[in-house]
Design a protein around this nucleic acid. Structure first.
Lengths: 355, 355
DNA sequence: GCGCACATTTGAACCGGTTCAAGGAATGTC
DNA sequence: GACATTCCTTGAACCGGTTCAAATGTGCGC
């Protein structure tokens, strides 16, 4: 039905007995065409089954596509399955809605190999969701000479336009919040996939390749230091952000003689699994144990108790990135936004018995 | 930095001292160009800051864009926030990954008004995620003379290529499952936004404008009828799929003298809220109350207990839709897929005391 | 030295529209 | 009736490439 329909504007014009220029005007500025002619052209179009000017032809002339692309080094499903990506995308999508722009999503890697897609995406600019392969992604993108903005870029060594977040300061606030509530025995739930040590020392933690993890860990330690707690005395358990490893980590942490009363989780997902474990193991949140997450995904606001967390400014990140691409606002090489702490129900005063 | 760079292939060719045709070949079929010439052209390109052939120019010639669009009548955020849409999109994305195709998402409505976007999306074809505005969406799409497939279309009256699911039969299976486990007092949790009656009669339920709700309700009743349970005797509570209304519905249902032992929820989201309520109100799942969801979203498999549900064949829906668009396989006007029941931990035998 | 096969390169014709200066017809004015 | 206006329409240039038949050059065998 919708097969190759070689009807061009030219043909419509010929059938209607007008020049191609006039036919073009019928579709783009109908008000300047005399009504009788306009109707003749429209009739011809209908008769020939002409679906309107081809976008590519128009595009060639116009130059602007009016769509932005979001690229990542993960498969396309990442955009809909990963919680952080999803939340970030919702914010970006809201921004595009506002501006009436289209949104293309692009996977720069296909089955583990760099894919051609980033070179061929029809967009006016790209937002890069950098997880691990940030630098490679940026390299690919630079070739295209399109405006782009990197979000979540870890490597501060790369000099590319990007908007980042102050992980270190956010983590510090989270730790100071627990300290201010009287907590002194506080554990950290890390995110990473390297399992070098069961109880890594601070030095081992800092050896991770993930800058995010390093920054957040350092921020936690800095916050705890204000209460005189040394980094080496803070139990640190690594997880891969799945329920199984989080539960395992919690079991280890709470098997201690004097278990923690506060937990600092490096992501909301981990925090939610931790709360699940606590509830399932007879501890009340926040009466017995307080938990602070990180990221501020919507799911965290929706649970019982609602999660106290370090909120990423998704909407502002999105606004800046989209603005930079559609509006052409230059972005400083590395803009860093502060992270507010959002206090909700999952944190409370340290149990009295522990004072 | 990435400003208007009016460097065209033509310019590169001139600087390199070759014809434009040869320059074109350097980028597209480098193997047929003599090495020395190739290097000369590449050098010229680098010198001029030429980012490679413009996509629009190429496109004009090639015709294929190698991307599909997914459109809906909701704002763009719908794709990342609605659970059904998200799951469907993940499946579609996986399919696109396989085929190496790009993916554009399109909102056909902007602030409640039909938007231009669906006319201007650069795609080879469209998948329509029809929620409520299905017919309008289809109308807009037909104008474009592009291949398209409607998913989730309710109105069987519309004669458009689409893939649907057998809601009625899925619901019937869910009901028969509870019946087979010995349940006899079974309640239905509906989804809808019409609050005509607190305890709607079957006739009132069928008056809903949502075909999905009608089909699922009829399926439930048909399944219960096999145990001699009349539709009029099945408590039906409507919700808007938010925690608040689901909890209110559960309160009403379980305030009865002889409360239900089985709950049929028209969506997994509703089912999960229902389980949350049950747990919070001293009922064990599935020992005291069994719950069956509908849709098969991933979150349902991940909770405790895992949710028994009617599984939508997301992957197959996606495969058919994407195949139809990229592969040009014609799709019958209305293909309907069966829905399997997935039995997990949230259903069990009716409590003995109730037998 | 000649003819032929092969490897490259060229030039021109598209791809499908948009735009704008310039031309022409109808209307209005004096 | 001459001239100025106003309103439409036309024709041609242009957007940035791709493609392919034909032209050019090159090397080789005899």
């Amino acid at each position: 039905m919708t097969q190759d329909n070689p009807v061009r504007l030219r043909d419509v014009a010929r059938v209607a007995g007008v020049s191609q220029g006039t036919a073009s005007n019928v579709f783009n500025r109908p008000e300047i065409v005399r009504q009788e002619v306009r109707e003749r052209v429209e009739a011809a179009a209908k008769e020939l089954g002409y679906a309107g000017p081809s976008l590519t032809g128009r595009l060639l002339r116009a130059g602007k596509i009016n769509a932005i692309g979001v690229a990542t080094a993960e498969p396309l499903t990442y955009f809909f399955e990963d919680q952080w990506a999803r939340t970030m995308m919702a914010a970006i999508a809201a921004e595009c809605d506002k501006q009436g722009a289209g949104l293309s999503i692009v996977s720069a890697m296909n089955r583990g190999r760099p894919a051609w897609n980033i070179q061929s995406a029809l967009v006016d600019g790209l937002i890069l969701l950098c997880a691990e392969e940030g630098p490679a992604l940026i390299g690919q993108t630079e070739k295209r000479e399109l405006p782009f903005v990197a979000l979540g870029l870890e490597e501060s060594t790369i000099d590319a336009p990007g908007v980042g977040i102050d992980n270190r300061d956010g983590a510090r606030q989270a730790a100071e919040h627990l300290v201010a509530l009287g907590h002194r025995r506080i554990a950290i739930l890390g995110i990473g996939e390297s399992w070098n040590a069961l109880w890594p020392t601070p030095e081992e933690v800092l050896a991770t390749p993930y800058l995010t993890v390093r920054d957040r860990a350092e921020g936690y330690w800095a916050g705890l230091a204000t209460a005189g707690i040394a980094a080496a005395d803070v139990p640190y358990a690594d997880t891969d952000a799945e329920r199984e490893t989080v539960w395992a980590a919690m079991s280890r942490l709470f098997a201690a003689e004097r278990p923690p009363t506060g937990v600092l989780a490096m992501s909301d997902r981990v925090a939610l699994f931790a709360i699940e474990w606590l509830k399932g193991n007879g501890r009340r949140v926040p009466e017995d144990v307080s938990v602070v997450g990180f990221d501020g995904i919507p799911e965290g606001a929706d649970t019982l108790p609602a999660l106290t967390t370090v909120q990423q400014p998704f909407q502002e990140l999105a606004a800046r990135a989209v603005g930079a691409i559609l509006g052409g606002e230059e972005i400083a090489a590395r803009t860093v936004l502060p992270l507010p702490l959002v206090v909700r129900g999952s944190t409370g005063p340290a149990p009295k018995s522990e004072l």
